[in-house]
């Protein structure tokens, strides 16, 4: 895709991206609601506010490319093509979930769509992504691996080890830090004196880029360049995308470490609102209600599907341990 094409989206594209981001938002709002009703167990980390990052980035991929991510993974799974039914069912811990109910919110896994997890250990999945990219290089399958991580992950030792090998071995991988300014309650300024996270690429001689998430099409364009570099030149890239989460770190976090004003101010810069306005400006504001309705129906259907799905057979506990 050419740069020009990527920056000037068609109206169809705008509607389609908007629906995808809105679905993630409404899906998670519903998940949060039923979580408080005790229908979802375990941890649950909402992506609300960050949807433009995953959506824009994954739209820069081919369907057979891989995504590896952390625990804030609902949006990534939906963008990668997992059905809202399977994702919701996984949150409910049902056998119809992406991971057959064994993983839950943090461990979405959908091999047919190239979604290779969903991981809970901060930074732990970064070397796995490098390994997946190594496999692609070894097999010559032309696939690219996109690895999402948080700003907290870049302080972990394994992150550096993975960056090092990706760079030395020229692996087709794109690392994306979703810098939402907090690692749980720790603000970025307490984690590091260098707030430009993209500088982490310097010791490894890796290409880097840094930009905001406000325009999802700009995200796609900038990630697209990195994906092309990975696919065509076999070179990794390190990207930092500046974003924000509106909710707490997880469902159990009241987020007392930041002010209401800060959150309100960030909400005004919501990429979803930005795209909505763009659609209105293009004279298609009348389409928004229908999109909202179709998303609501999809979320309702996902909830119903999840609730009515059976829990995993107890036998499953031993089934996926040894080949």
């Amino acid at each position: 895709m050419s740069d020009a094409e990527a920056t000037a989206p068609t109206l169809d594209e705008m509607r389609s991206f908007y629906r995808e981001m809105l679905l993630q938002r409404r899906f998670e709002e519903a998940a949060a609601r039923v979580y408080t009703q005790g229908k979802i167990g375990g941890f649950c980390h909402l992506y609300i506010g960050q949807e433009a990052v995953g959506t824009g980035a994954i739209r820069a991929l081919r369907p057979d490319d891989y995504v590896v991510t952390a625990y804030r993974d609902h949006g990534h799974a939906l963008s990668k093509g997992s059905s809202s039914r399977a994702v919701m069912a996984e949150l409910f811990g049902r056998s119809t979930g992406t991971s057959q109910g064994l993983g839950g919110s943090m461990h979405l896994f959908d091999v047919d769509r190239g979604l290779l997890g969903g991981y809970g250990i901060v930074g732990g999945h970064v070397p796995l992504a490098a390994g997946v990219a190594f496999a692609s290089k070894y097999r010559g399958d032309g696939r690219v691996t996109l690895c999402f991580m948080g700003d907290g992950a870049v302080n972990q030792g394994v992150f550096f080890e993975a960056m090092q090998l990706a760079s030395l071995w020229s692996l087709p991988v794109v690392f994306i830090v979703e810098n939402n300014l907090y690692a749980m309650g720790t603000p970025l300024s307490m984690q590091t004196p260098v707030e430009d996270i993209s500088l982490k690429a310097v010791p490894f001689g890796m290409d880097r880029d840094r930009f905001e998430d406000r325009d999802v099409f700009e995200v796609r364009r900038r990630v697209g360049r990195a994906v092309d570099r990975a696919r065509e030149e076999g070179r990794p890239t390190f990207l930092e995308v500046l974003t924000y989460r509106y909710r707490g770190h997880s469902m159990s976090d009241p987020a007392r470490y930041r002010t209401k004003e800060e959150v309100e101010e960030r909400r005004l810069r919501d990429p979803l609102l930005f795209l909505e306005q763009r659609i209105k400006d293009a004279g298609a504001g009348g389409d928004l209600a229908a999109i909202e309705e179709s998303v609501a129906a999809e979320v309702e259907d996902a909830l119903e599907f999840a609730e009515n799905s059976p829990p995993p057979d107890p036998e499953v506990a031993t089934r996926f341990v040894y080949a």
Binding site: S167, P193, V194, L199, P203, F204, M206
Partner: peptide, 14 residues
């Protein structure tokens, strides 16, 4: 290392 020198290892951390 793919970087020109090892001193640059420090740059990423300020």
């Amino acid at each position: 290392s793919a970087a020109r020198n090892l001193a640059s290892r420090a740059r990423a951390t300020g």
